[in-house]
Design a protein around this nucleic acid. Structure first.
Lengths: 337, 337
DNA sequence: CATAAAATTGGTAACGTTGTCAAACTCTCA
DNA sequence: TGAGAGTTTGACAACGTTACCAATTTTATG
């Protein structure tokens, strides 16, 4: 029956403490020039009433919202949860909050979500990748708040980017394949190479092979989402078209591991008959024999760094970083190449 | 030089279209009783000015924010990204937005984050688990908005819960172990059994073994986070204490797979020398031989269902679900038991 | 054609907070 | 003891939107 009491406001706290609203406000946000006695009185009143500030109201007046729009393609990717974890670790203890948007690997969707999230007046935007729709790019360029593009670092950021080099990844693996003596090299990707990151990696891989006087014999880009099954299917198609292939680079570890299963099931010896390499350096790799050759992408580090830069920028720190920040990759040699 | 123009407001749109602010507001939020001509005029003006609504202001006046606070322990868990994906899928096309909080498996932290997120006046709360600190429980109970507790379903929800039964999981595996003839059974957990879910599973497992006239010979709860390494370490300790053990149930697939590696490395034959079973039913399982016996938890389904219920409740649908919703588990027999 | 009913538009006042400025009070030091 | 500086407190207005109600126009009805 009892109509639940509406949430107490600063007005209630002020009345309860016998001070003005603005003084209560000053106490709550630890503003300077408040006497100890007033501070205590307000704190007591706030606790007594169970006051919680209304950040919506504060944001409206104060213009800055402490909300950070984070836009990633999906959570089922193995990559973006790590990024989010890193961001959250950096935001730990600050007042910054993540508002999440997922683009489903679709640029139009990304733009729509960006517009929607901007209506929350975020204090910053963290978005994945350097490639966006024309509309999204224009919006991002016009933004007053920090815009940090994560994951990718071979291109020019709108404001600041934290990522790793897809070209470098392609080069590392091409060099490794050549060094190990493979000559008939293939590639398997997924998701129609959306986002563009994986394509960049493949093109860099091809280019480096070309520098070594080799060419990519064949490549198979599946439409389906990355998974073990997709990797297996991709490899099967590749091998039926180009049976003499001796090494395959995959867009990610999931595909490569799926392909490894396929080989195992079909009596193809890895690496003797066929060498396989992945990308990302997921923990799973540790559980599977032979251990996959791959390249570790610094996912949590990217998130943490992006989060820290966001904090610095919003805190107005003059030494906050800008521009392109390249995080190192580590080559993880395994027993599959 | 050019001071960037401030974001256009409804006032600007209204002036540009030659109508009142409130009319512009009505057009923007598709309210009824607006003539076609006025609608068009306002839309044109809005597009011309590049107007984006300010939801902060709208939320302040309108009281409801369309922000949904989602609190999970971590993203590196393999489980929660799937839940978030499910939630996002449900919110797709609606105006609901996820504001994220991570509790780091700490109830005090969870309570702090809950308080913080509430200051954003969320229209709903999705939080993981049925166990919370006394303070958090009190806050959640007092909330006017829908509160959906996800993952767990053996306990009473504050408002509504969507999850699966830990007891049921424990029972399924106990029955399976007994049926397969194992008698000297152990258990390995991690993270000090935070959150309490895994403990519930273990206790139900023990209880069911007792019904079969068996007892859990030994269990080893590691302090470290779940990982392959933790699983291997846990199993090693368990076996050094109780070398005659013949089957082990693990708190999750990661631990079980790590243990499997350990067996492989130490010449322990699975399942002949030792049977292993996990929990969760991660995709990884498909890539590893012998295939792990486990139980699939309906993670994305839980997220999607919770998101849908949230939508229904906020939309005021009278048939929106309430109370405890139990999602089915599927037993996935493998070759490790 | 008059009148009631419905549809359309606008004015005003909030929502809860904080920036700006001014007033009051306290303290220091000549 | 009084001027000047510093500290503490408060009043007011504003952030951009929408709820509520009133005014106006259009449409339907007898």
């Amino acid at each position: 029956m009892a109509k639940t009491a509406p949430r107490p406001t600063l007005r209630d706290v002020a009345d309860h403490a016998g001070v003005s609203v603005i003084s209560a406000s000053r106490v709550m946000r630890e503003a300077p020039n408040v006497s100890e006695s007033l501070r205590v009185r307000v704190k007591v009143a706030a606790t007594a009433l169970g006051y919680t500030p209304n950040r919506i109201a504060g944001s409206l007046r104060g213009q800055s919202s402490d909300l950070i729009a984070v836009i990633v393609p999906s959570m089922s990717n193995n990559v973006f949860p790590d990024i989010l974890d890193g961001i959250d670790a950096a935001f730990q203890g600050s007042s910054l909050r993540t508002v999440l948007g997922m683009s489903r690997y679709d640029m139009a969707e990304e733009e729509a979500i960006l517009r929607d999230l901007l209506s929350w007046n975020p204090s910053g935007v963290i978005i994945s990748g350097l490639e966006h729709s024309a509309g999204a790019s224009e919006i991002l360029s016009g933004l007053q708040c920090p815009v940090i593009e994560v994951m990718d670092s071979d291109g020019d950021p709108i404001d600041t980017s934290v990522g790793f080099s897809m070209s470098s990844a392609g080069h590392i693996m091409a060099d490794h394949f050549v060094e190990r003596g493979y000559r008939r090299i293939g590639y398997v990707g997924a998701w129609g190479e959306r986002p563009a990151r994986s394509r960049k990696r493949r093109l860099a891989f091809e280019a480096r092979l070309a520098e070594h006087g080799l060419s990519l014999i064949d490549h198979q880009i599946e439409d389906a989402q990355s998974s073990f099954a997709t990797g297996a299917a991709g490899l099967a198609k590749l091998m039926s078209r180009s049976p003499n292939i001796d090494a395959v680079f995959f867009a990610n570890d999931d595909l490569a591991l799926g392909a490894m299963m396929h080989c195992h099931a079909h009596g193809i010896l890895v690496p003797n008959d066929l060498a396989l390499a992945g990308f990302n350096g997921l923990d799973i790799r540790d559980g599977i024999t032979p251990r996959l050759t791959t390249i570790r992408s610094p996912r949590a580090e990217i998130g943490a760094r992006a989060g820290q830069i966001m904090l610095d920028r919003i805190g107005g720190r003059s030494d906050a970083e800008h521009g392109r920040i390249d995080m190192p990759l580590s080559f993880l040699p395994g027993e599959t190449t």
